[in-house]
Write a protein that binds this DNA or RNA. Structure first.
Lengths: 344, 344
DNA sequence: TCAGTATATGTAATCGATTACGCAAACATA
DNA sequence: TATGTTTGCGTAATCGATTACATATACTGA
């Protein structure tokens, strides 16, 4: 195992100093063309590779960005990460992944560790908690480390965000159910400390209101995003004296759980009951009874978050920008909510 | 924005030298208890955090490991990454993600960039190519950077690997189909330059042989891992004069495509046709007609790969170890291949 | 020819931490 | 008391690259 080539090795080889080598390699004008050529050739010959750690120490920039998500093994977050990686890799950034498992303590740990590793920016989706960790996030901003929220955000001065229009997603999904003739529309939502769920629920309510349907709080369940939670909640809904005839779930998994129970009880979908999910998880289109869902274009969201980060980095240091990007949600209308057409 | 505290700041505060501060912080015995106590207190008070970049430059260790996968937005790879992250985060490593998109050029780029970023190890699943990139992988080994393959591997001296027993997975899945009474079993496999697909196919053949069923190459298709490829291939199979009565697919997605076509043609599953997939993708258990599949325990695989990396790191530098871990595959037998029992 | 300017290169500090080496004081031993 | 051994701490080099500043050389024009 041979030691890697440094600029000092090149300097010695050519009997010049490391400073000149550095200048030659960095397109510094204060170097003669002949020397530059010689250095470049020798560098190639000696297989020189810039030591990023040395550069990082001197410049204070690591060329790494941290990405914090609740978990990585979900299609949604994985797709976002893919988008971020694809956008940033080509401009020389590496991404470091951290998972919070929705735990505020781990989340603040993650932030601290990333700051300590001197990442050049942090892109994150916050975990399910109210007002915790605000101080540490402010510390990130104070340190002039770009902080960008995607999907799950909260308001903190100086923090940009990329989200979809959850209100519109909720509105459109509910509207589609109404258009199919449903008027007793149940709703599964998530942790109301998160704006995304608040907004989807607001969209749901507004759609009801705009169409003259009275909001009924008995139809609304705040549940976790998994199949069993959906099963449990639909059971309760079906035991109401006036059970619903449709469901808008902010989670595809909970929607699936509901569908399972409905079928077990012999309730036909979409004829007797329509279902709309949220997230456009891969399985929604694979089902024999494909599930309608709101797509959040996670790939796009990741790319956009990366772009916002790059803008922020390339901005004048002292000019704090706070950009809010809101992507449009896209309805994928499938069998579970299509009484009229014949969709595959 | 205040500058971060360094050991020099602490030294100045206490009127000692940075060397002493460093010794105090690192449990070096060559320091008095009183000084150590003073330093620790002052460090805490001044909110000192070790600068990992400086440490990295001096030690040549970045405390980062690189993880290279074909793509991150697949449940399988995302789960592996999750396992790796969970195992390594607690011991102070960060993981850097790269995607190859199955492209050999990008793969070698990734390796080079990671080496250049001085990662302390590389954990990867190789892309779909024969014998390319062997040289660069050997270079990784030469540089004494631990290299660990997971799932998709090839033989390179000094490289450890963590895989599942693909042969057994193929064998058991095929055997199960035979046990259900099928004897014209078709097979979808993948790129034969990858050991995983070779081995699954070998397992398939051996199961046929052990059960007195003649191997028929007309029943074997080498296809991509997606729904449409599965649809296309099953069409061809069904047009054979003696069409198969079962399918063992090394891809859950292709299995799904096949199932779609079979149902469209009115062929009942599992009564007339049994299907076994591979990968245990989340959707396989969500389907109304749930799909039998071989589980590869990706989370476990990721954790194991991380453990092998740690072993390698903590080993005597000069002692090259090459560890091969083979995990047991686990059958998840579901409706698509269960004629006899009533599974959900 | 000589001052003035450009151009190319070298010198040395810097980023922050670790550590081999050396020295002084304190203590032990005969 | 003289000598040897610990103990605790400072000095300075090191990791590899960048860059402000200094300096030497070449070139310009009157």
């Amino acid at each position: 195992m041979t030691r890697r080539t440094t600029i000092y090795d090149i300097a010695k080889e050519l009997d010049i100093t490391a400073a000149s080598v550095s200048r030659a390699l960095n397109n510094n004008p204060k170097i003669s063309e002949s020397t530059r050529k010689l250095v470049l050739e020798t560098a190639a010959k000696m297989n020189y590779k810039q030591n990023r750690l040395a550069l990082a120490l001197r410049s204070g920039k690591s060329n790494n960005v941290g990405v914090i998500v609740p978990r990585i093994d979900s299609n949604f977050f994985a797709s976002i990460i893919r988008g971020i990686e694809e956008e940033l890799y080509s401009v020389g950034y590496h991404i470091i992944i951290c998972q919070t498992h929705e735990d505020a303590k781990i989340e603040s740990d993650n932030i601290n560790t990333l700051l300590n590793a001197q990442v050049d920016g942090i892109l994150m989706s916050i975990s399910n908690v109210i007002n915790e960790n605000n101080d540490i996030m402010k510390r990130v901003v104070d340190k002039n480390v770009p902080l960008i929220f995607f999907d799950r955000k909260k308001h903190i001065d100086g923090v940009s965000s990329v989200t979809i229009d959850d209100f519109e997603g909720g509105y459109l999904a509910t509207k589609q159910l109404i258009d199919e003739g449903c008027n007793r529309i149940a709703h599964f939502t998530g942790d109301q400390s998160l704006e995304i769920f608040q907004n989807r629920t607001k969209g749901y309510k507004k759609a009801l209101e705009d169409n003259g349907i009275l909001f009924d709080s008995n139809y609304v369940f705040q549940i976790k995003s998994n199949v069993d939670a959906g099963r449990l909640a639909i059971e309760k809904l079906l035991s109401l004296e006036n059970p619903p005839d449709a469901l808008f779930s902010t989670s595809d998994f909970a929607a699936l759980g509901a569908i399972q129970v409905l079928k077990e009880k012999g309730i036909t979908i979409p004829e007797e009951f329509c279902v709309f999910g949220f997230g456009n998880e891969p399985f929604t289109k694979f089902m024999e009874l494909s599930i309608s869902s709101v797509d959040q274009s996670p790939l796009e969201m990741g790319k956009m978050a990366a772009k916002v980060f790059l803008e922020q980095i390339n901005n004048n240091e002292n000019l704090k920008i706070e950009k809010k990007v809101i992507l449009k949600p896209e309805l994928h209308i499938r069998k579970s909510s299509s009484r009229n057409s014949n969709l595959r």
